[in-house]
Each structure stands twice: as C-alpha cells, then as structure tokens.
Design a protein around this nucleic acid. Structure first.
Lengths: 222, 222
DNA sequence: GGGGCCGTCTGTGTATACAAACGGCCCCTT
DNA sequence: AAGGGGCCGTTTGTATACACAGACGGCCCC
C-alpha cells in the first residue's frame, strides 16, 4: 500500500514514530532490531537511518550506535533562533511575491479559527496552519529556503508535543497568524517581518513557560 | 590513510570532486561506474550518494538515476536569499555573544588582507575568511543555525568557481568583512546585520555581473 | 513507410553472507 | 581486593548475489 521502496517506507515510519514520541529521545536504534520490526532487511533500513540522521532526528551516540535525537530546553531555544531567521525572511519575501487573493482568504480563515479551537476542532486548526505554511512556500519559489523551513518545521512537530495543546494560546496564535497573513496580503514586507517575529517570540515563551520536558536520559530499552 | 569507513571516503571524495567542478553539473552518477572507480562496493557508495543528495549536491533525475545537481543563475539568487537570512541573523547574534578579542584580531587581519590579495596570496585570504566563519559559528553556539550555515557555504564553494577570483572585488570584500568584524567586536548587532547585508548584496551583484555560467547540459561522464 | 508491441538488457533496489571493530566480562596477577 | 589483560558476544561495515523495473531497440503488422 505505501509506496514502492522499502527504504522509503522505513524512513516515513520511523520519522512518524519519532515525531509522535512513540520512539522517545535517547532510544537506541539497533539495525537488526528495527529492520526485524519493520519486516525489511538491514540495507534499506540503513538508508532510512542515514536520511533521518541528515534530518537531525537521529544522532550517533559515542560508541553505542544511533539513538533518537535528544530534546532539551536549550535545543528548543536554538531551534527558534534559526526559525526566526528563516521565517521572518520568508514572510518578508512572500509579501513581495504572493498571490493576494490566497492570503486574503487565509486571513479570513484565521479570523474564524478561534471558533474552531473553542469547538475542539484542533485538527482543523492545524490543517489551516499547514495551508498557511504551504502558501508561503509556494510564494517564495525558492527551493533552498523552503528546504530549510521544512527542516525546522520537522523538529517543531516534535517540540509541539512538549506543551500540550493549550486552547487559550492557540486562540492568540490564530490572531497572530491573521496579522501576518494580512501584512503579506497587503505586500507590507516589514510589517510581515515584525508580525512574524512577534508570533515566534510568543510561541517560544509559551513553550518555555510550560515545561513538560521530563529530563530524557539516554535510557536502555527495558 | 583516509579515515576508516569506505562510505566516508567515498562521500568526501565525491563531495570534493563536485565542489571543484571535476564532476560537472548534470553528470550521471551510475552506481556501478562510481563504485568501480573508487574501488569500493555499491553498498557504501549508495550511502555516500544518499548523504550527497541530502546535502543538495546530487539530485534524482526523472528516470535516469542520480546526477550532479545543476547550477543556474536562478539557483544562485535563491541561494543568496537563504544566505542573507541566515548570515544577517548570525552576525547579529554573534555580536551579542562574541569574544571581543577574537573579532578585534579578525578586524585587524582583514585590514591587512588587501595586501595579501594584491600579492596573489589568495589562499591566505580564503583561509582568513574561513577563520572568520569559524569564529562566528563558535560564537553562536547553536548547532541548528551552524548546520544551516554549513549547508549554504557548501553550495557557495561550488558557485565561487563560477566567477574567477577577481582581485579588485576581493579587496572590496575584505573591507566589507572588516566592517562586519568591527561591528561584532563592538557588540553592535544592528550594524553587523546591515554590514552583512551590504556585503552579501555586493557579492551577489558581482557574481551576476560576471556570468561564467556555460549552459551546463546533462552529459555523460567521459 | 510508420507506429505499436514485445523482448532484452542495463541499472537500481533488496536480501544475505561475511568480516572487522567495539564493548563487556571474567579471570588472572600482584 | 583492585587493576589489567585477554576472550567472547554483539553490532556495525562491506561485499556479493539476486530480483525487478524501466529504457532502448528490433520486428511485425497495419
């Protein structure tokens, strides 16, 4: 059912499991163990691990082989520094290249997003954010920049699970997104940049203020 | 001689050859062909190609397998957009975290760099730039940001070969670097950001004004 | 003479077998 | 009893053999 290559399936499966915390940070990824579990041989599994390492989701631990990359409060701050650099630039550039209609629609949708959140339709809200990200990517028309953004968003998915969905924060985030979308719609690059920075700083502060980071020690599988 | 793993050697070798244009953009990288040439089996070669693909130096071509990534004027502009986003942020952050002595020394060295260039000591000049980049990376203390910068610099090495070393431009670039180093030394984040932007725009304009881009057709390796 | 179909053939994708390195553990020595 | 050295087991790294898919060319039919 899933696409042809075993290495692709292994990559997608492991990636999903890591992002969903089904594979916790520090988990040792033995080649034999994982290839057996996924029903493939070591060869395609190794390719999958290689790609995950390139993504930064898997790290080499001193002598112990590969483990799921750790997450620490410091890493979150560092990731957000990169994120701010990329997304402020992306918003500014998108302002100059966007399809105004698309972002007008997004601004309207974010206007109604508070209702979504308050009705518990979190999936719908996250889908809207994803549509927003896609619209920016498409406006940019820059594979290098989009690729860097993708990498950051990957890590963000894992971090998002640190602070559970807080409806109050999401309502505010929706308003911030709306401001960004309006600025891009109006072609106001500097305003888009500022609005993006404000949104990211608020997001980071929220995550830091809700530290669900259990000190994830490198642990042996039980 | 070169470090233990065959896949590492293959990766380093191919990477160097691509960056030095010994493997031209569009060159088809057949697995059997390359593994034979490098004296290894297909398994480690495939791992090396996988990493090069993650780096963006190798791309999958529709049905033809893997080829050395193309370089186009559009790609150069796009790369510089990403570069500006990253390096302006890096300079600003480095200004807040730097060791002032280190950047004072760098500023002095860039002051003398015009002499280096005019004496044809280009290697010494490039080594100085590398020392500058390393000093910024170390100041940042942010693996995510440093990793993104590394990726951009990799592609830049290949692009640099497009416009041959122009001493007049390098002398001006040295002065621009000096300005950046001084701003970082003084902890002036906004000045560092502006100086970096100026430097990058000038660099891009120079490359675009000296188009040595032969239309690199996909060609078979000889 | 042109177009479509089939066979072949080159190349990638996967599995497995083999080799070497690393760590852990026990035993021996002092 | 503590430290060091050697042995064994496990795990990774590499090579090779096999399977399958896509591309190219020839041949036949229209």
């Amino acid at each position: 059912m899933l696409s042809g290559r075993a290495s692709d399936r292994a990559y997608e499966t492991l990636r999903r499991e890591i992002l969903q915390w089904r594979l916790a940070p520090g988990t040792v990824l033995g080649e034999v163990e994982q290839s057996t579990r996924l029903g493939i041989s070591r060869t395609p599994l190794r390719e999958a691990l290689s790609r995950l390492t390139a993504d930064g989701l898997v790290e080499a631990q001193s002598g112990r082989g590969l483990v799921v990359a750790q997450v620490s409060p410091a890493a979150v701050s560092e990731l957000f520094e990169l994120r701010e650099a990329l997304e402020t630039a992306a918003s500014a550039l998108a302002s100059e290249r966007r399809d105004p209609g698309e972002f007008a629609r997004l601004a309207d949708d974010f206007d109604g997003a508070a209702a979504l959140v308050e009705q518990g339709e979190l999936e719908a809200y996250y889908a809207l954010v994803e549509r927003f990200d896609d619209a920016i990517d498409e406006s940019l028309g820059n594979p290098y920049l989009v690729g860097a953004l993708r990498g950051v968003r990957t890590h963000l998915q894992r971090i998002r699970r640190l602070s559970q969905d807080d409806p109050a924060r999401l309502v505010r985030a929706a308003a911030e997104h709306r401001t960004i979308a309006e600025a891009i719609r109006d072609g106001d690059a500097e305003l888009a940049r500022s609005a993006t920075r404000i949104h990211l700083r608020a997001s980071l502060r929220h995550i830091q203020a809700n530290p669900r980071l259990e000190a994830s020690e490198p642990k042996e599988s039980a």
